[in-house]
């Protein structure tokens, strides 16, 4: 299969938090709206949900000089190259598409929730009723059809754009130049590169729920790269040793009238 990797660039410096993307995502993916609570913020719902795959986070932030800033960040699946969720998924429900993005096939999902805790970005959401996990698939159906994801199409300010990986990384650094270096490109330096990248106006550490150094958790690597293969290797090796013992030493025969055994 021809592989062209796509990257969606989220330029937070251009985002006005209109939430058009949030609504377009719901509409295209036919996700219902659920009643939420007002927590004193425009951020609604308060967090990603099984029915909300992308969300504008509203954050009030004052920098060292006391300058106030309102930070908007569109949250959602980052479509990792080294995707922890795919690594742990036992069913194949999570997979890499030909665009390098991470798709999800709910028909295969068994609701084990392993991906939920494995994801370094806390993205997958479990639905109690369907017993399945949901998350953004970067509009795989639309990409296959040569169309932009619904969120990108809806964005009125040009904060969301999508293109080939190389082109978008170039665009991101060009934009950084335009901003006189007052910004950060986020996404190209970890988990093998993500297929959603940010231009952030502040240091990544400033943002709510944004990991500074995201990585596949050490526990996942131990589990999948070490313990998993060694389950079969261990059992096989022991079976082999038992067979050798039987052939070389032979079974441990019982000795009549002998105290103490051999």
């Amino acid at each position: 299969m021809e592989k062209t990797e796509y990257v969606k660039l989220i330029d937070t410096t251009k985002c006005t938090a209109c939430r058009g993307c949030q609504v377009a995502c719901k509409q295209w993916n036919e996700m219902p709206a659920l009643r939420t609570r007002n927590l004193g913020s425009y951020q609604n719902p308060p967090d990603l949900q099984w029915n909300t795959w992308t969300l504008i986070r509203f954050q009030e932030y004052a920098n060292k000089n006391g300058d106030f800033k309102w930070l908007f960040r569109k949250d959602g699946c980052m479509h990792c190259t080294e995707a922890a969720c795919i690594k742990v998924c036992p069913s194949g429900a999570l997979y890499h598409t030909e665009f390098g993005t991470v798709g999800i096939n709910q028909k295969l999902c068994i609701g084990c929730k392993a991906c939920v805790s494995a994801c370094p970005f806390d993205v997958p959401r479990f639905n109690q009723e369907t017993e399945k996990v949901y998350k953004c698939d970067l509009c795989y159906d639309r990409l296959k059809d040569g169309q932009q994801p619904a969120c990108v199409l809806s964005c009125p300010t040009g904060a969301l754009t999508i293109g080939t990986k190389e082109a978008m990384i170039e665009t991101a650094y060009q934009r950084l130049d335009q901003l006189d270096g007052k910004g950060v490109v986020y996404g190209d330096k970890f988990v093998g590169g993500t297929h959603v990248m940010y231009i952030l106006s502040e240091d990544p550490a400033v943002y709510d729920k944004l990991p500074v150094k995201p990585r596949v958790p050490a526990s996942v690597i131990l589990w999948k790269n070490l313990f998993k293969p060694f389950t079969l290797i261990g059992m096989g090796a022991v079976a082999g040793m038992a067979a050798l013992h039987y052939l070389i030493k032979g079974p441990h025969e019982v000795h009549e009238n002998k105290q103490g055994g051999e």
């Binding site: 805790s117 526990s219 313990f227 022991v238």
Partner: peptide
């Protein structure tokens, strides 16, 4: 939650191997 998966797999490795013995 994360470490539970690793511990589960490690324990399975140990119990599985000892089971063969």
């Amino acid at each position: 939650a994360r470490w539970s998966y690793a511990i589960h797999a490690l324990s399975a490795l140990v119990i599985g191997s000892f089971f063969v013995v």
